[in-house]
Structures are given as C-alpha cells and as structure tokens.
Design a binder for these strands. Structure first.
Lengths: 345, 345
DNA sequence: TTTAGCACTCAAACTAATCAAGTGCTAAGA
DNA sequence: TCTTAGCACTTGATTAGTTTGAGTGCTAAA
C-alpha cells in the first residue's frame, strides 16, 4: 500500500525520468513537488518505495529510476492519458481525411500516422472476423503462359499470385479446377481448407491436371498468405533511435522479429477491450527487454475487431502515448465505419 | 606512372587494409612482400604513392590506407577477381536449383543469395526490355463490391490492385471500359499510355462511368507501378554492420534511399557490359560516401538485360566481391535461360 | 514525523604518464 | 643513384590517478 505522498513521488519520478532520461534525485523532487517537504523526507519515502521494488538506483549513490514494477504501478494506478495536442488532431484529420479505395490503404496509412505522432514504431491490423472463410477462387489467364490465382475470403481479404505454366493453357482444365475448388472448399474456414488440401483434394485434382503438384504449391501458398494476419508497420527506422550503444545484434533480431509475419500475433498478444501496456520483461521475447508495447483494439461493429500498437523504449512518456493510442483507435473506428457505410449500404 | 614495385605496394596496402581494417605500415609490408627490401625503402615508395594521391595517412604518424583514387587504380589496373570458393558454388547451386514458378521468385531469391555470399546488401533487377508495352488490361469482379484491376505488359510484368466500388458492379460498364482501354492503349509504351491518360481517355471513359475519377486513379496507380523498375533487396540489415559509431541519421537516410523505389535507378546507374565499381564519393549521394557499389548486367538474349548489384563499405575485399558478382551474373543468366526455355518453347 | 548536517559513494570528466606503431630524414654503403 | 641502418619525432591508445558534483543513508535534534 502506498500513501498519497508516495504515489505523488512515484508519479513524479516516472514523469521526470521518462521526460529527461536522467535518474531523479531527492533534491530535484523536493523543489518540484506541490507539497513543501525537505529532500531528507523525500529520501525516506524513496527508500520505502525502493523497499517495495517500485524504484531503483543505477548505482549506490545515484538518483532513482522506475523499475518495471514501478512503471506497471504507474500505468495501472497513476497515469492519466494526456488529451491530444491540437497539432496531433490536425495530423490525424488531414492524413485520414482523403479518399481511399480499399481498407488496406486506410490501415497502412494508420501505421504511418501513429508512428509520426509517437516517433516510435507502429503496427496496425485490419478488422478481422474470427474465422474467415474461403468465398471464392479464380484462375485468370494472362497472356501466353501466365496465370493469376486469386483467392477471396468472406471478410474481403484478397490474395493473389501469378505463375508461369509450361505448354498451352487449357481453358477447360482451368475451369474444371476452379469449379472443383469452389464446389468443395468454398464456405470452409481457411484452416479447414488447408487440411483438405493435404488430404483428398490432390487426388481429385489429379483427374484434371497431369502434374498437379505445381498448382497445389501455388494454391497452398496463396492460402497460407491469406490465413496469416496481414499487418502494417510504420516508422520501422525509429527503432534505430533507441539502439543503446549501437548493439547491432539485438537490433537485427528486433527487425527480424518485426518482419516475420507469423510471429507478430504472438508478440501483440490477445485482443482485449482495454488498452494494454506491456513493459520490458513482461514480454517474453528477449529482443524486447528494453521496450514497451502499447496495444489497443478497435471495433467496427459487425465487421469485426482490429488492432493498433506502438513499440517504443520502456522509458516512454506513457501519459502522452496512452492519450494518442486511445484517441486514434476512436478515429480509426469512425473512419472505417464511414468507409463501410459508403461501400456497403 | 607507377613502377612495378609501387604497384606491388599499392596492391598490398589495399589487400591488407580491406582485410584487416587497420592502416598498413612500412615494416609489416617489408616483411610480407615477395621482394626483399627494407622498411625504409618501402617508406620512400609510400611517400611517392602518397604524393600521387593514391594512399593517405589517418594521422601524421600512422600507417597508410588507400584513398578513393587508390581504390580506383587498384580496381582498374591491379585487381584480379578471385575464383569462387567451393562453398560459394554450393550455396549458389542449392539456392538456385529448386523449382520456380515465376521470374520474380528467381530474381528475389538471387538478391538473398548475393547478400549471403557477400554479407553485404544486394540488389537485383529482372531482365527488362527497353520500352515495355501495355499488352492487356482486366477488371475482375470479386465478391460483392470489390474489383481487381490487372495490367500486363509484353515483357510479362503483371501489376494488380483491388479496390472497392460503391453501388452495384455493372458488368457491362466494366466490359466497356476494359474494351476501351484494350482498344485504345494496348501496344503503346507505358509512358505513352500515361500521357494519353491525362489527355483524351478521361473524356471517353466518361461515357461509360458517371464518376470516372476513382477508376482513373486506380488505373494510373497500377500503371505507374508497372512503369517503375521493380527491384529486390537482400540483406538490408547488413548495412547495420557498417554504421561506424552508430550514426543513426546517416543510417536512416541510407535506408530511405534504398526504400525509395524511384531513386534506385539513378543510384545503380546506366547499364554497361562491364562490371562497374563505384567508390565512395564517386557516387554523388551523400549517404553513400563510405560505401562502394558494384553493379553488373546480365543478358538473357531476346528477353533483355537485367542487373545485379552489391553495396558494401568502401573498404571491401574487391577481388573476392568481383569474383562473386562476375560468377553470379553468369549463373543467373544461365538459370533464366533455362527457365524461359522451359516455359516458352 | 520532519529535517539539518555530515560522512560516504560513485560515475564522469580531466590530467599525466607510458607504450607501441609508425613516420621522415640523414648519412653512410653498394 | 639507389638502398638502408639509425634516430628523433609524432600520434592515438591505454592506464592510473585526481577532482568534481550529484546523490545517498544515517544520526540527532526540533
């Protein structure tokens, strides 16, 4: 249990340290705090806070910095999200105001906006229904020897891939394959389709194509891409700003993590209604020990739930960041609702 | 004019320095050189080389390092490309040996291989005909309100983009627009198409669509993408290894340069038959002052000419790198010829 | 419970001393 | 004329020692 005064001190330590990056000493605090006490008193209180593991020293005679637990307490109990700055509002309005022709443009643009506002790295995921289902498959012949495979899901995701075929393209064969897939697989969830693709489908396709393997490769490829959550990243380069003493290796593993599409879901974690903050070692990933991750979901009614996130140093100004993330999720949801309303109704 | 002995010394200085990164002194050279002279003699020769601007000191009593002019002389007159190591050959064979379904897979894979072999950053461009022409355009309706626009050029490039439309999709309108484009624009070079797109096409399309602007945006978009040379990058993270004293700003501008699609052509420069080496300030771009760029073209007969390149520190082992680039361009050309032969004939 | 005072700690900044690698120059030798 | 041994000199790196300043914990008095 913390006393009022201890909370006040903890809050001040976090605020000061996140702003300046310098450990905070008792004298500076005494001068700054609204109550009138001496630095010695502050020292006593700080010792108590340290006892509880909320703040720590960088060396035996240094000022204090927040521990991970201290940040956590601050985020859970003390922080109040800052309201947006007028300038921030302008940025959002103007970047999100234009005309868009597809959801993905809005989502990818959002990642850029978020990274600009925060000067950290931002992630965005489009609204996604729980289990999206295969809703259509096409094979479009292009030119002489080229075919484009297109896969559509019921949540509107489209994946496509072109590939070359040897010999002439037989229109009837293509049609037969497309019909087969649409008959047998449309309506199933993508994992189900993947499972069937390993089982009975190859046999059936063998009836129409003499060498189905190539085709199955392509189809499987497009399918896995569609099953993976596509996410957008903004401001990747901002990570460079926080590479303390230029630790190239950890930077590299950080970037590999970000670029590995299949890992991002596990990093961002489960959606939850609240805005979630994970701090340093609260994330299991080694590369993220000095970072904090703020994630938030946004709802677009029947179109499902999406996610936005920002990744910055543990030592980030949480009140401002929480304000930005909170406000932006609202703006994005609003924008998407408008978008769906325009195209769907 | 350099004497035989001076050449020998210059060669040794470059070789030593590129291998170790440490300025090369007269004593070490005297011990290492095949001829038997004292370090004092070497010092005299080095003074002569410095006089000519080919080598320089890092401070008044240091060993010598090559100047940009020294590297240039070395590359132009002294270097002999290393033969590939057996291990390198294995890497190429196994990474390029698999089955590919499209040119782009081979080209993108090549960027990865090159970066692995060199541990630098690699670029690859697919073989490109001089002025590729529009050879086909489609609008494929997907689901309720989604359309995919597909553009094909006569060199086999495919660009596509999906977009949403408000209101019901009118199949006849779509067909009319597609027919219009195919009638009026197929066969023209892409710049010509772009020009027409600003001029008479909008009027004509206005006859079929009540609000053509959205469509024109999309079409223009796909068109510009198709007109830009698509290139692949391998080993971008390797640039981090050479950020001397973690100069974040110059790293950032380096990455922005690499990611800006429209600038890369100007960076890579004009194709030429030879393998070209550009060193440090021979490139005008500020961000590249400490880098060297090796570019090489490769020919795939009637399918045009492509390009590969590697970007590494000025202080790179040129003989090995030239060997790798030289050998790889051959391998790649061979692989592509095989590929075209399989699919085209 | 608060606070003035004091002894103590530690990182950072600065100074001085030493070392090793290298240079240019001179003068003697081939 | 070219080569080379010898020597004085320069410089960056490393190490050890000092000083400074911000900060701490503890004690004893208010």
């Amino acid at each position: 249990m913390l006393s009022e005064r201890q909370m006040m001190i903890l809050r001040a330590v976090v605020r000061d340290f996140t702003n300046t990056g310098v450990p905070v000493g008792s004298k500076a605090l005494a001068k700054q705090l609204p109550i009138h006490v001496s630095s010695a008193t502050i020292r006593n209180e700080m010792a108590a806070l340290e006892e509880q593991g909320l703040i720590k020293k960088t060396h035996s005679s240094s000022g204090r910095i927040p521990s991970v637990e201290g940040y956590r307490y601050y985020v859970d109990h003390l922080v109040k999200p800052d309201p947006l700055r007028p300038n921030d509002i302008d940025v959002i309005q103007s970047s999100l105001g234009g005309d868009f022709h597809k959801i993905d443009e809005i989502i990818s643009q959002s990642a850029t906006i978020l990274s600009n506002l925060t000067s950290y790295t931002a992630f965005t995921l489009k609204p996604e229904l729980k289990d999206s289902r295969l809703s259509g498959f096409r094979l479009v012949p292009l030119g002489k020897r080229q075919i484009m495979a297109i896969l559509v899901t019921d949540s509107g995701d489209v994946e496509n891939q072109t590939f070359d075929v040897a010999g002439d393209v037989d229109g009837e064969q293509l049609e037969a394959v497309v019909r087969l897939i649409n008959d047998q697989l449309v309506g199933l969830t993508l994992p189900e389709v993947l499972r069937k693709l390993q089982a009975d489908i190859p046999v059936k396709i063998g009836q129409y194509l003499q060498s189905p393997q190539g085709f199955l490769d392509i189809f499987g490829d497009v399918l896995t891409r569609a099953a993976q959550e596509r996410f957008y990243v903004g401001g990747r380069l901002n990570l460079l700003n926080f590479s303390q003493d230029s630790d190239v290796d950890s930077l590299k593993s950080l970037y590999s993590l970000i670029d590995k599409t299949d890992d991002i879901a596990s990093v961002l974690g489960q959606p939850s209604d609240k805005i979630s903050v994970r701090i340093g070692n609260e994330m299991t990933n080694d590369a993220l020990q000095n970072f904090s991750l703020i994630t938030a979901t946004y709802d677009v009614d029947q179109h499902g739930q999406g996610m936005i996130a920002i990744l910055g140093p543990t030592r980030m100004p949480y009140s401002r960041m929480l304000g930005i993330v909170g406000a932006f999720r609202e703006e994005l949801a609003k924008k998407l609702l408008d978008y769906y309303r325009f195209y769907d109704e």
